[in-house]
Each structure stands twice: as C-alpha cells, then as structure tokens.
C-alpha cells in the first residue's frame, strides 16, 4: 500500500482529535496548539478532514440500495448444516422386544415393585429418610473455557507462539503423543492458507491438552492464529459443538479416542471447513 507514514506529531494530533490521548499527553498537545502555529494548522486540517469525510459517508447512505440485493437477502435460504464432522459413536441400541421379552420384563417389574413395597412397608421409620441427589457439575464448560483462555493468551504472541517450532515435527509428535496418549498426524493446511507454526501443551480441567498452531499467511487476515487442539476429556453428551465464546470461535468433534477442536477468531467464517479438513488429516 502506497501510504506515507504520518509523522509522530500528526499521529499525536490525530489521537487528540479522537480524545484518545492520555492525561499528560493532552496537556502537552494543548500547549503545543497554543504555541505552535504549524501544529494548530495540522490540527485544523485533521478536524476538517474528519468533517469532510463524515459528510461524504453520510451522503452515501442516501443512495438507493438495489432491489434485487434486498430480495436476494430476504429470500435467502436459512442455514442447513453442510459440513458433517465425525460424530461420537452412539450405542446401537434398538428397542424391539418380542412378546416373551415383554412378558418377562413386566413380571420382573411387578416382582421388583412388590419387593420394594414390602421392604418399605416393613420399615416405616425408613420413610423419613431423605435422599439427596447432587446435580452433575458442568465440568465441560470449565475445561473448554480454559482452552479458550489459553488460545486468547498465545494467539497474541508474535515471538513466543509455539513451545516447539514447526521445524521439529518428530519432537512434536513424540512429545504430544506421549503426554496426551493420543496418536495423531500434523495436518498440512497450506491449501486453506494456513502455515504450521509449532505446538504447545497445557492442562485444562486437569487433563493434558495438545495444541497445533497455524498462522494465516494470505489475505488481510494475514497473521490470524488458528489452533487445532485435542484432549482425552469428553464434552457433556459427547456432542460436537460450534459456537463463539469470548470473541473466539470454536468447532469441536468427538471420536472414540479424543475430543478435537479448531479454535480461531470469531470473525473466521471458515472454521468448520478447516475442521472438516483437519478431521480427515489428523
């Protein structure tokens, strides 16, 4: 982009126009505006530019929107899940009892009910006892939140993104497989514009979690970090998940061996595509 870099003075005055300068800076700038005619002229130019631009953009709102554009959005089909991620195996239990099985089940329930009734009837004092049922803890939310917090912390690192760099794939495979107990391959996602940067390991919910880190290498999103993460912890109900939490997008899928996640910025609209690709390669 052929844009000349504004001078430090121009940047300070521009920040002052936004009233974003800190307290100390503010006084400095005000003194400068009183004493320096060049700074005053620059400040006026910045404000004038802001006004001119605002008016021009306001005028653009008056232009009519093409009707076919409005119609195409109004009539667009509502979402249908196009990407099928691997699902956790479900028990193949089919309830089709035969007549004899039904009879035996009814008889068993009758005998069991009679036995419980007899037992309670013969021990009237026991009826006063209370039974406490504890609600199951929502532990899965905690470990997923841990994983997202880790992502948010490291995705901003420019020099310390990975613990083991991408140049040592054998080390990464041995280290993560040994510690997580999950064997895997490092997916090559160059086709999706993602370059492998290396790997990390941490714990979430008391279980080791492995993370393979990729960086976008093309387009304006250049630099965005996308992480493929896996652990032996299971989400509640072994369900796959696709949502945004704390400005971070997460797509999960579950296999008999592990739970896998693709994590990226909430603006990354292709996380499920990346997940579908990674699921076939990892």
């Amino acid at each position: 982009m052929s844009v000349s870099q504004p001078s430090p003075l121009e940047l300070r005055l521009s920040a002052y126009v936004d009233a974003q300068a800190g307290d100390g800076d503010w006084h400095d700038v005000e003194d400068l505006l009183v004493n320096d005619p060049q700074a005053r002229a620059l400040h006026d130019a910045l404000r004038r530019g802001s006004e001119v631009g605002r008016r021009a953009f306001d005028d653009m709102l008056k232009e009519p929107v093409p009707l076919d554009l409005v119609r195409s959005i109004k009539n667009a089909p509502l979402p249908r899940r196009a990407v099928r991620l691997p699902q956790a195996p479900r028990p193949g239990f089919l309830l089709k009892p035969s007549g004899m099985q039904t009879f035996i089940a009814c008889l068993s329930l009758f005998v069991l009910g009679g036995a419980i009734g007899y037992f309670l009837g013969s021990r009237p004092a026991a009826t006063g006892e209370r039974v406490t049922i504890a609600a199951p803890a929502q532990a899965d939310r905690d470990w997923l939140d841990d994983i997202i917090a880790q992502y948010r912390l490291y995705a901003r690192q420019t020099t310390h993104l990975a613990e083991i760099p991408a140049e040592r794939p054998a080390d990464i495979l041995e280290w993560l497989t040994t510690n997580t107990g999950i064997s895997f391959r490092i997916p090559d996602l160059q086709g999706s514009g993602l370059a492998f940067q290396g790997a990390r390991m941490f714990t979430a919910g008391g279980t080791p979690v492995a993370q393979l880190l990729y960086r976008r290498i093309e387009g304006d999103a250049d630099g965005d970090v996308i992480a493929i993460t896996f652990t032996k912890t299971r989400p509640a109900g072994n369900r796959s998940l696709e949502e945004i939490r704390n400005e971070t997008g997460i797509v999960t899928w579950v296999t008999p061996l592990a739970t896998y996640m693709v994590i990226g910025p909430s603006s990354a609209a292709d996380l499920d595509d990346i997940a579908a690709k990674a699921a076939g390669l990892i």
Partner: peptide, 30 residues
C-alpha cells in the same frame, strides 16, 4: 480504534496511522 483494528485484521497502531493519513488526505482534497 481497537474494535476497528480487529474488524480489519490489523494492529491498532496501524489503524491509527491509516486514520490520520485519511483525515489529512481528505482535508487536502477538500
């Protein structure tokens, strides 16, 4: 500035520089 930088996928200081350049450019064009 931070929100706008996130939307555009750039650093906040890069956004501040672009904003400043845009204001000066518009003033000069005007």
């Amino acid at each position: 500035c931070q929100e706008a930088a996130t939307i555009l996928g750039i650093q906040a200081d890069q956004l501040a520089a672009r904003l400043c350049a845009a204001r000066l450019g518009l003033a000069s064009a005007n």
